[in-house]
Every structure is written in structure tokens, then in C-alpha cells.
Design a protein around this nucleic acid. Structure first.
Lengths: 124, 124, 124, 124
DNA sequence: GTGGTCTAGACCACA
DNA sequence: GTGGTCTAGACCACC
């Protein structure tokens, strides 16, 4: 799911990928995260890029680093992510989404359908 | 509506702004569009930036240029825009939107509400 | 056959259109050419644009103007056009044409066929 | 081969120059292309001009860009270029070429000769 | 007046 | 180092 074709920076794609894991409760507080080298190999990107992801996550408080050991999920990581994303959602995502619906004459039913048919797939 | 705060490039914001006008039937086929210098002044950006917008629209076929005269809305511009945007919508926007809803536990009702409350406002 | 879609200037398209008539012996020396207004109406362009065409043709010697009367085909117009065009042909058109053939793996037969099938059509 | 004398814009000359390399199999899929600054220096033009070339090639799908890394030849670049050029060839180049031949009384033999004498020369 | 191209130089984010 | 965007200003051809 990490791709160069997307215009969003790779390190942000990885950041979101990690956050998504946390949101799905696959990684909970104090869970040790994959090492920089590991992830870099898995995604086929430069280790610096992954390091940058962790740096940002650390600034967020989403993650905390233990020198010489690795990175761990922070205490209230999930709650923080949810609140940040919700804010983003209501402020930008939802309005622009509705705007698109209106412009393209898309009925709410389509959205409901997509919602009901959603399966947890495309998961690297 | 054009802002430096948004991370999307100015020339693409303007492109979208023009396309939206066409989608709303404010500008139909063969309508002459504002000149490069005019728009540049209106948005307070460099003429080159607007020129770049029009260049892209021309490559799209959304717009056609007449040297020494100006730009005009292309023949099937609206249909082309709708089909392009719909494709983008079902391929990316909608899936990632639903994904967000699931991750953030947002119920479809919220979307319906937003949809119903939508007014055509803040329209330059 | 005069179109805004072509990237070549309109006045040059018209110039070529007139020269082609001469090459086909439809207009010979001393034939009076259509007036500026006439052509402008026929092509749906600004009279200035046609005027510019005649101005160039006059500089060429292809055409001579009689004040208050109109424009007439010059004495050795046809020969001059042919020589100019031939020069252009061997210097640029032919080489780049052959280059394209090589790059696209197009065999000479295709050209011969096109040549033999050519009818004098698409003539405004 | 890139010259200011030609009336075609520099950035399009460079585009063609790159496409020609691909057609000649000198650069195949996934080959990394010269950087913007490199080409700009080589041709003695402004980096923006080369950037514009690459922008077009990217829109084409001929090339794909990786931020911070460089540009790479796209997957079916060669095939796409060939088909685009062939289309252009049969739709415009060939008809207008034959038209010229007729108008200037040029015999097919001349073309065959030029074709046979063609050497892959002046190739940067 | 219009669009089209090019230069010079700046700043940014990314790897 | 790489690409991407933007500005400022110039020059040109066209209508």
C-alpha cells in the first residue's frame, strides 16, 4: 500500500499505515513496533525515510523511543489519533466530500451501500 | 477560495475552481473564460501560475485557446470533467472515505446530515 | 480548412491556402484575388488577419496590390512559390519525414500507396 | 540538436529528443533519466525549461517521477510513443506530405532515395 | 489587448 | 542530491 505513485510523501504514508494499525487495535499501548530497518526492507524504501516517520510519531506522542531497544506505542496513542483524525474529518474531509457528491449528483444511497459492503481488505 | 494554506498547488486549486464553474453550468461550451492576467490579478498570484492552470486545462481538452483572443470552454468539457471526477471518486475518494468512517466509528447518519445541511455557499 | 485548432498562425494558413490555389493553376498571373473583406467573412476571421496575409504575400512578390482595386497574382508567382517550397521540402520536410519513417518502422511502400491513392480532396 | 532557430518550443524539442532515445531502445523501461539540472546544463537552457519537458512526459505517462530520486522511463513508454506518433503520422504528416509532393511534382523515387541514403547520424 | 515561451532566482519537501 | 512550485520580468507572435 506504500507507493511512489501517490503524491503524498512516503514517510506520511507509512505514518498513516502505523496509525491505522493502532486504530484497529492490532498494536496497543506499549507494543513494540517494527524496527526502522525492518520496515525499510519491507517497503523497499530508504531507512532514513522510515526514521523520519518515527521521528514525527515521536513528536506526536503517538510513539515513544527507548534508546537501543526500539519504538513502542504511546500511552493514549489511539485516543489522540482518533481525536486528531476526527477533527480533520469534520473540518475538511466531510465538507469536501459532500461538495463532491453535490457536484457529481451522487446520492447518499451510494455511500450507504459502499459503507455496508466494506470489508477489511486491502491491508498490506 | 484559493489559498496558500492548502498544500495542493495554487495552479491546481485554480484548475478545480474553473472546473467547478463548468460543473455548475455557470460557464458552458464556447463561453470565453477570464484572461490570464485578469485571473492573476483577481487571485493575487503571478500570471505564470494562471497560465499553467490554463495549459493543463488545454491538455485536458477542457478548454481551448485562441491566440490573441483568449480561452474558451471546450465542447464536451462538462461531461469529461464529470466522468473524470466520478472515476476518481469511486476509485479513491469513496473507498478511503469509508475506510475513515470505519476507523473512526462514524455512522452513516452523520454523512446524511451533512449532505442535507449542505448549502451552496462560500462561492466566489 | 482554416482552423484555430492548428498551432500555425491563421494568417499563414490563409497564405498557404492562396499559394496552393496558385500552384494548382486555379489562379494564374494577373488574376484578381478575393478582397480582404470577402475572405475574412468566408473564413470567419478578423479582416486585419487577412490583411496581414496579403501584406506578406506582397512582400514575397507573390501578389501585387492596386490601390483602390484589389490584389492580383504576381508575374512569376507560381515559379517563386515552387522554388521556395522545394527548398523547404528538401531542407527540412523530407529529412524529418524519413527520420520518422525509420523511427516508426514505416516502409516506403506505405508512402507509395498513399501517393497513388491521393485524390484532390479536402479542398475548401 | 536543440536549437533556438527552430520555431518549435525548446521544451518540446527536448521532449522529442528524449522520446527518440526511448524509440531507439537506448533508454528502456525503468531506466533512470538525466536529472533536470543535468540536462539543463547540457543543453544550456534554464532548468525550468527542462522541468517543463519532464512535466509533460509525466502527464503523458511516458515517464514517472520519484521525489528526491529522479525520473524513470515508464512501463509501456515505447509502445505508447510509437502508437501516438503513428497516429499523428497517418492522420497529418503523411497526407500533408503527399499533398506537397503532388503540388511540387515530386516523384516517389526521390523519397525512396532519401530513405535508402538515410544514415543514423548526427545523433547526440 | 490576448496567449506562449523562456530566464533567473528563490524556497520547499523529499530521499 | 532530487523534483515541485512560485515569482518577477522579459520578449514574442497573434488578433
Amino acid at each position: 500500500m506504500i507507493t511512489q505513485n501517490d503524491t503524498t510523501p512516503i514517510f506520511l504514508q507509512i505514518k498513516r499505515w502505523i496509525e491505522d494499525h493502532i486504530l484497529r487495535d492490532e498494536w496497543s499501548a506499549d507494543t513494540q513496533l517494527p524496527s526502522v530497518r525492518e520496515l525499510a526492507a519491507e517497503f523497499g524504501v530508504n531507512p532514513n525515510t522510515v526514521a523520519r516517520t518515527y521521528e514525527r510519531l515521536t513528536l506526536d506522542g503517538t510513539v515513544r523511543s527507548a534508546r537501543g531497544i526500539g519504538f513502542f506505542v504511546g500511552e493514549n496513542a489511539k485516543e489522540a489519533i482518533v481525536s486528531r483524525r476526527r477533527e480533520e474529518f469534520v473540518a475538511h474531509t466531510l465538507p469536501s466530500f459532500v461538495e463532491q457528491m453535490k457536484l457529481l449528483n451522487i446520492e447518499p444511497e451510494e455511500i450507504i451501500n459502499a459503507y455496508n459492503n466494506h470489508k477489511d481488505e486491502n491491508w498490506k
